[in-house]
């Protein structure tokens, strides 16, 4: 018998190593050229760089939830200088147990701030946070900083995704020829549900007789089913689509092939289909990240909950220059934005 030979063992190791590449700790590649900030310009710069670790369930290239935080981190890094901010991440941590191990590893290795980018990581995060009181932890979508558990080193963050959803809904309703909109949702919960409810509210407020068809795929990553859902919406008469989570790249592909328009959320998706994507609600986490770093350096390790809104600039509607938006649609969207900012419009019914 020649079972379990060296070759087989080698392959298993290679497989695990590669699988880990989809996830395990990866130092973020340098993009901005270093040495942009000489020491003289930043006299207060600490000798040690600030170390951030980022754990997320999807890839950092998901064009959605994961990428929004990653882009934010890269922006902050570009601003602070690569020598002063070190970023490490573990992505595609779909298994909560793996993520928990990664969070603990980062904490033991002395990272200053550890971002657990998924609601499902909450319990694990609280467990680890107890053991590392001088390390800052952050998680979202969440508002609970663990204060009732006696924790002082946890930040929570969320995005008021319904606000941009409302704006997208207004735009979509104004631009639709058929009067039917389609929504490709992942799982009926959390950030996705907020966004979709806002979208429906915005569309109905603009055109009371508009039809908004909603479907969920039951998964964040089922790209093929998301594409088929988009096709189904189009077959059912929709000419404008939207959706959320990393699976939407499938839906965007389908919209592009069928000539339908797309509204995005979380990360700017116009690069994927420049002729289809009208606008995207972008989650901009830079201010949140910078505030957490500043608080940490000042000795406050947690206890604050952040919400991205249109008013505080954490949410931005980014138009794609490649798709023309009619002036009256743009005007309606601007009006709605003002209304949300001053509180006269409630994006959730």
């Amino acid at each position: 018998m020649r079972r379990l030979t060296p070759l087989f063992v080698l392959l298993l190791i290679a497989a695990l190593a590669l699988a880990a590449c989809g996830g395990a700790k990866t130092a973020a590649p340098a993009e901005a050229p270093a040495a942009e900030a000489p020491a003289a310009e930043a006299p207060a710069a600490p000798a040690e760089p600030f170390k951030v670790a980022f754990v997320l369930p999807s890839p950092v290239t998901d064009l959605a939830w994961g990428q929004s935080m990653y882009d934010g981190l890269k922006a902050v890094q570009a601003e602070m200088g690569e020598a002063n901010l070190e970023i490490a991440y573990s992505d595609s941590m779909f298994q909560v147990a793996d993520a928990a191990a990664a969070i603990r590893d980062y904490a033991s290795e002395g990272y200053d701030l550890i971002i657990a980018h998924g609601t499902q990581y909450g319990n694990s995060l609280f467990d680890v946070a107890k053991d590392f009181p001088e390390t800052s932890f952050a998680w979202g979508t969440a508002v609970d900083t663990g204060a009732d558990k006696g924790l002082k080193n946890v930040f929570a963050y969320e995005a008021a995704a319904q606000e941009g959803g409302y704006i997208n809904g207004v735009l979509a309703a104004m631009m639709s020829q058929s009067g039917v909109l389609g929504v490709v949702g992942p799982v009926e919960a959390g950030d996705a549900k907020l966004y979709i409810d806002g979208f429906k509210a915005g569309a109905s407020a603009t055109k009371p007789d508009i039809k908004v068809n909603v479907s969920y795929t039951g998964s964040f990553g089922d790209t093929a089913l998301a594409a088929e859902a988009a096709n189904t919406h189009i077959a059912a008469g929709a000419d404008i689509l939207t959706g959320s989570a990393q699976q939407v790249v499938g839906a965007i592909g389908a919209a592009k092939d069928k000539g339908a328009k797309w509204f995005g959320t979380q990360s700017d998706q116009s690069s994927l289909a420049p002729e289809s994507v009208v606008a995207t609600q972008v989650f901009d986490w830079t201010a949140t990240i910078k505030d957490m770093i500043a608080l940490h350096n000042a000795g406050t390790y947690g206890g604050k909950a952040y919400t991205l809104t249109l008013a505080n600039g954490g949410l931005k509607i980014v138009y794609n220059a490649g798709v023309a938006v009619p002036a009256e649609a743009k005007a309606a969207a601007d009006a709605a934005m003002k209304g949300i900012e001053d509180g006269s419009i409630k994006p959730l019914p």
Binding site: G22, P59, T61, G221, T223, A224, V249, I252, G253
Partner: peptide, 18 residues
């Protein structure tokens, strides 16, 4: 069939257990 006929995009773990 997935990547160049039906979805025409590629994403990590695009098969999602198919």
């Amino acid at each position: 069939t997935l990547s160049i006929a039906q979805l025409n995009v590629w994403q990590e773990n695009i098969t999602n257990g198919l």
